[in-house]
C-alpha cells in the first residue's frame, strides 16, 4: 500500500461516511468509494458489487470500467473473491492469480490474462448483514497488502456499509430495497448510454464511458442523470464527442 498521510486518510473516511447529503446518489457514492480505495492502495483497479433482491452479486461501480474488467465482475456472480467475501463476511487477501486456477477456474485465468497479478475482496458488512463486496486488483505480484493495510481497507468498507445502511434506514424502512433496485436499473441505463455514445461518436464502449464520466464531472452532474439524458431524452451532447 502506498504511504498516505494520516490527514488524507481521515478525510477519505469522512467523505465515505457522508451519505446524508441532499439528493444522495448511490452510483456516484460507490464510484467515489472505488476511486478513493484505488488511490489509497495504489491498486490497478477497484470495483464494487452489491447483492440484488434475488441475492445475486451485481457490478455497481468501478475505478475503471473497461470491457475486460466488466467481464471479470460479471463472472463473479458465480465464482471469485467477491462471492467468497460476500458469503463468508471475511476479507480475501493477497491471492496470487497465477496460482488460483483451481480455486476459481473461470475467474482466475481471465483475471491473469487481463494483466492482473493479485486480487483482494472486502465484504461490505454491518454486524451480521453483508450487502456486497469491494474488489481490489493489483498488478504487482502477490503481497501488495501488508498486515497493517488490511484493517484500514476493511474499515473503509465497513464505514461505507454503515453509511449506506444508515442512509437507507433514516429515509424509510423499505428504502434499502427500493434504492438498490433503482441503482441496479441505473447500471443498465449507464450501459445503454455507453452503447449509444459509442455508436454515435464512433468510439469504443470504454471510451464512451470515459466521455460520459468526464462530461458528468465537468458539468457537476450525476452520472445517473447524464446517462438518463442520453438514452431517455435522446440528446447526445456534442460535448460527448471524443477529444
Amino acid at each position: 500500500m502506498t504511504t498516505v498521510s494520516a490527514q488524507r486518510l481521515a478525510s477519505i473516511f469522512v467523505e465515505v461516511a457522508d451519505t446524508l447529503v441532499e439528493e444522495f446518489d448511490l452510483i456516484d457514492f460507490l464510484h467515489m468509494l472505488t476511486d478513493r480505495t484505488a488511490d489509497l492502495v495504489g491498486a490497478a483497479a477497484v470495483g464494487l458489487m452489491l447483492a440484488d433482491g434475488r441475492g445475486n452479486l451485481e457490478f455497481m461501480a468501478g475505478s475503471d470500467e473497461n470491457v475486460k474488467l466488466l467481464e471479470l465482475f460479471q463472472l463473479q456472480a458465480r465464482e471469485g473473491p467477491c462471492l467468497e467475501a460476500y458469503r463468508t463476511g471475511q476479507p480475501v487477501i493477497n491471492v496470487d492469480l497465477g496460482a488460483a486456477a483451481s480455486r476459481w477456474p473461470r475467474f482466475a485465468p481471465r483475471a491473469a490474462a487481463s494483466g492482473f497479478q493479485s486480487v483482494h475482496a472486502f465484504p461490505l458488512r454491518l454486524r451480521s448483514q453483508v450487502i456486497g463486496a469491494l474488489n481490489v486488483f493489483g498488478d504487482t505480484k502477490g503481497g501488495d497488502f501488508t498486515g497493517a493495510d488490511v484493517p484500514i481497507v476493511q474499515s473503509l468498507a465497513d464505514v461505507a456499509a454503515i453509511a449506506l445502511l444508515q442512509e437507507r434506514a433514516l429515509r424509510r424502512g423499505e428504502a434499502l430495497t427500493e434504492q438498490l433496485q433503482g441503482a441496479l436499473n441505473t447500471r443498465i441505463v449507464i450501459e445503454q448510454a455507453k452503447g449509444a455514445v459509442a455508436y454515435a461518436q464512433g468510439v469504443s464502449v470504454d471510451e464512451a464511458f470515459t466521455l460520459i464520466r468526464r462530461y458528468a464531472r465537468d458539468h457537476n452532474r450525476k452520472l445517473t442523470d447524464v446517462a438518463w439524458a442520453i438514452v431517455h431524452d435522446r440528446t447526445i451532447s456534442p460535448e460527448l464527442r471524443p477529444v
Binding site: F59, Q192, A200, R234
Partner: peptide
C-alpha cells in the same frame, strides 16, 4: 449482460 444493454444503446441510435 452489459453487452446486451450496450447493444440496445447502439441500436437505438
Amino acid at each position: 449482460r452489459a453487452e446486451l444493454f450496450q447493444a440496445q444503446g447502439m441500436v437505438m441510435v
